[in-house]
């Protein structure tokens, strides 16, 4: 693999991997807490956030877009909590109410305002723009040591790298409280752990990961990565530590294989054009989940070995 790979494929693959890992990590805990839908909720509310940011600033620059999306994600999280508490409604329904209404609000805003001229279309929101995040200045592998070329790396790479590192550090630091409060909330509270703050922190971290990933790769990967790698990983092991490791492996594998299949797969089948990398990455993560369901060593967990031992 030579110069062409470095120039056209290296950065999209790296961005795909980092985005996938950043979403899959908190996804492990969200899935175990039966809150996986929150990834869906967040990626839906990102749209109104971006539209509002555009209406306020009048620009499509990355920073206001990101801030708008992050703000909308936090509004959604608070809204979900409020609906849950005040309405005494189960979490899934609260998420459904919050994200459909916010998403609908975003679509209305988009229709009513004069944003159609700018590049704020639905396809971009769904599929992102992974293939275009190329490293134009790269001449080959040697560019990795060339400061001038490095400075011309796509901005998305730096952003998602920072967010991914942040997610990893937070997961490591708060591992024990996260694990204890996810498994046994009352016990965690009796220990004096701030269970509410831990849950909120988890969701906000997931929101930040979702927004950063959305910016680079679109919402379809975000939704897939919150659920597929963790759910597949759960079928590979009975230990949380191992599950999280597997989820990282599956996220990475999805990103690499998805990108390669999208670029070359159609050619192998005699088709002319490449397909969307983001869509293919999400598809591969789904295929991995299907394979884990069929062949994972711990797939038929429920009811196994529950014979009453005296």
């Amino acid at each position: 693999m030579g110069a062409e790979f470095v120039q056209f494929s290296l950065t999209p693959i790296l961005i795909g991997i980092l985005a996938s890992i950043a979403c899959a990590l908190p996804g492990n805990f969200l899935v175990l807490r039966k809150q996986a839908l929150i990834g869906d909720a967040i990626s839906h509310v990102v749209l109104p956030g971006i539209v509002v940011a555009f209406l306020i600033t009048g620009s499509v620059a990355a920073l206001p877009m990101l801030l708008g999306a992050a703000g909308a994600a936090i509004v959604a999280v608070i809204l979900i909590e409020a609906i849950k508490r005040l309405g005494n409604i189960e979490p899934g329904a609260a998420m459904g109410v919050a994200f459909t209404s916010l998403f609908a609000g975003g679509v209305l805003l988009l229709e009513q305002s004069d944003t159609s001229s700018v590049h704020l279309d639905v396809e971009h929101a769904l599929m992102g723009n992974l293939e275009s995040l190329i490293w134009f200045k790269a001449q080959g592998w040697s560019s990795l040591w060339d400061l001038e070329a490095l400075a011309a790396l796509p901005h998305e790479l730096g952003r998602i790298a920072v967010v991914c590192a942040l997610v990893i550090v937070l997961t490591v630091i708060f591992w024990r409280p996260l694990k204890i409060s996810t498994f046994d909330e009352s016990f965690a509270q009796a220990l004096g752990l701030p269970v509410g703050a831990i849950g909120f922190g988890l969701v906000v971290t997931a929101a930040v990961a979702a927004v950063a990933a959305f910016d680079a790769v679109g919402s379809i990967i975000v939704i897939a990565m919150f659920i597929c790698p963790p759910a597949a990983a759960r079928l590979m092991t009975n230990r949380l530590e191992t599950q999280v490791t597997w989820s990282i492996v599956f996220a990475t594998l999805s990103a690499i294989l998805g990108y390669v299949f999208a670029g070359y797969g159609p050619l192998w089948f005699g088709a002319q054009n490449a397909v969307s990398a983001a869509g293919m990455i999400a598809t591969v993560s789904g295929i991995i989940l299907a394979l884990a369901c069929l062949f994972g060593p711990y797939r038929s967990r429920i009811g196994v070995g529950r014979e009453e031992a005296a």
Partner: peptide, 22 residues
């Protein structure tokens, strides 16, 4: 009150009792 399907082992659960110390 807990989900016994949670991916963890017996010794891991007991170690949770050490959290205030560790």
């Amino acid at each position: 009150s807990v989900d016994w399907d949670f991916p963890t082992t017996v010794i891991d659960v007991v170690m949770m009792g050490l959290y205030r110390k560790t």
